[in-house]
C-alpha cells in the first residue's frame, strides 16, 4: 500500500531541492533566506546548520560560496499515490470545467497503469443540498472558463445575472476568487462592484464577457472586510461541546473554558454568512446561548418570538 506519510513529500527535501536547482552561487545568506521562507518555524535551528556545514556534501564550496553538485536539482517523478489521485479526480463531473472530454480521455490514457484512488460511489455526502450546479452544461463551462481567465489576467467581467426573483441585471465586476461550496455543491464568484463586495452564483449567470482591463488587481479588490463576531456559551451536555466545536471548525474561533462545564466561544464570520450561521446556531437548540453581539441576539430573539406565536405546537 502507498504511504502518505513519506519522506518523499518532506518539506526539508523540497528546500534542499530548491537550493540544488539554483543556477548561480549559493551564499550563506541565500541558504538562510531559502530556509526561512520555505521552512517551518524552527527549520533555521534544525535544517540550516546542517546545510551551512554542507553535512550532506551536496554542494561544492568555492571562495566561501556554495555551488550545487546536482545541477538543476531533481524533478521527482509522480508517485503511484499521486497518479491514482489524479485518475480518481478526473472522474469528477467538475473536471470538465477545466478540461475537454478528449483531454480527459488522453490524460486517463497516460495514467492507464494505475487504478483510481477512489471512485465516486465510495463517498456519500448525506446532507449535501440537492440543487447543486449542473457542470455538464456547455454554457456553464464557458462562463466558468471566462471567469477563470479574467481572474488570472486581472480583467473586469460583464455579467448578465439572474437575481433571486428572476430579474436579469447587468453587472460590471472585478472578479477575485472562485469559491466552491462543498455543502451546496456549487461555485460562486467573489467579486467587487465599485466599493461593494458581491457573491454571485455561477449557475445564475446568463452571459459572461471579459470587460476592459482591471484598474486594481491586488489592492482594494482582495482586501477583506473586518469579520463580525458572535459570542456563544456552550453547555457541555449530550456531547454538545464536541459537536459545536466540530460543526464550527470551518470558522475562525476562540474558545475559553469557564466553570460548571461551560465554555465561551467566539466565532468570527462574514456578514454575508450571518443567516447561515444563525440557523446553524438555532439547530443546536438550548445547548448554545448567544451572548453577543447585541444585533445577533436580536436575530435569535426574533425567530423565537415568531415561534412562540405559532401556538399550535404547544
Amino acid at each position: 500500500m502507498e504511504k502518505l506519510f513519506s519522506e518523499i513529500y518532506n518539506r526539508y527535501f523540497g528546500i534542499v531541492n530548491l537550493l540544488l536547482s539554483k543556477k548561480g552561487p549559493i551564499t550563506k545568506k541565500l541558504l538562510q533566506d531559502t530556509v526561512q521562507k520555505n521552512g517551518f518555524g524552527e527549520s533555521l535551528l534544525f535544517l540550516l546548520p546542517r546545510l551551512s556545514a554542507n553535512e550532506w556534501e551536496l554542494f561544492e564550496e568555492k571562495d566561501g560560496v556554495y555551488h550545487s553538485r546536482i545541477k538543476g536539482g531533481v524533478k521527482q517523478p509522480l508517485s503511484r499515490l499521486q497518479k491514482r489521485w489524479l485518475k480518481a479526480v478526473l472522474e469528477d463531473p467538475r473536471a470538465s470545467l477545466f478540461l475537454e472530454k478528449e483531454q480527459i480521455r488522453k490524460l486517463k490514457g497516460s495514467l492507464q497503469e494505475v487504478q483510481p484512488l477512489f471512485a465516486y460511489q465510495d463517498f456519500y455526502y448525506f446532507d449535501r443540498f440537492s440543487d447543486g450546479d449542473d457542470y455538464t452544461k456547455e454554457g456553464y463551462r464557458q462562463h466558468f472558463r471566462t471567469i477563470l481567465s479574467a481572474i488570472r489576467n486581472g480583467q473586469m467581467l460583464r455579467i448578465l445575472y439572474q437575481a433571486r426573483r428572476g430579474r436579469n441585471t447587468k453587472l460590471l465586476v472585478q472578479p477575485y476568487y472562485l469559491e466552491y461550496s462543498v455543502k451546496n455543491d456549487c461555485y460562486r464568484l467573489l467579486c467587487r462592484r465599485g466599493n461593494q463586495r458581491h457573491t454571485l452564483r455561477v449557475s445564475r449567470m446568463q452571459k459572461v464577457e471579459i470587460g476592459e482591463n482591471a484598474a486594481d488587481v491586488d489592492g482594494m479588490m482582495r482586501k477583506e472586510k473586518e469579520p463580525e463576531k458572535v459570542t456563544l456559551i456552550v453547555k457541555d451536555e449530550r456531547n454538545a461541546m464536541e459537536r459545536v466545536m466540530l460543526q464550527f471548525a470551518d470558522y475562525r474561533k476562540n474558545t475559553v473554558r469557564l466553570e460548571d462545564n461551560r465554555y465561551r466561544c467566539e466565532i468570527f464570520y462574514d456578514k454575508d454568512d450571518e443567516t447561515e450561521l444563525l440557523i446553524e446556531i438555532l439547530s443546536f437548540g438550548p445547548m448554545l446561548q448567544v451572548i453577543g453581539n447585541e444585533q445577533f441576539i436580536k436575530l435569535v430573539q426574533e425567530r423565537l418570538k415568531k415561534q412562540a406565536a405559532l401556538t399550535s405546537m404547544a
Binding site: 502518505l4 513529500y9 523540497g14 521527482q76 509522480l78 508517485s79 499515490l81 499521486q82 489521485w85 489524479l86 480518481a88 479526480v89 469528477d92 484512488l117 477512489f118 463517498f123 477563470l148 481572474i151 488570472r152 476568487y177 472562485l178 469559491e179 466552491y180 461550496s181 462543498v182 455543502k183 451546496n184 460562486r188 467573489l190 466540530l246 471548525a249 470551518d250
Partner: peptide, 28 residues
C-alpha cells in the same frame, strides 16, 4: 475539496505552484 486533497497538494508543491484563484466554503 476532494477526498485526500493533500495528495493533490503534494503535486502542486512539487511543481512549485500555488493556488491563487480558488477558495472553499464548508470544508473541514
Amino acid at each position: 475539496d476532494q477526498p485526500l486533497g493533500v495528495v493533490g497538494n503534494t503535486i502542486l508543491t512539487g511543481q512549485k505552484e500555488k493556488n491563487e484563484i480558488f477558495h472553499v466554503k464548508h470544508g473541514f
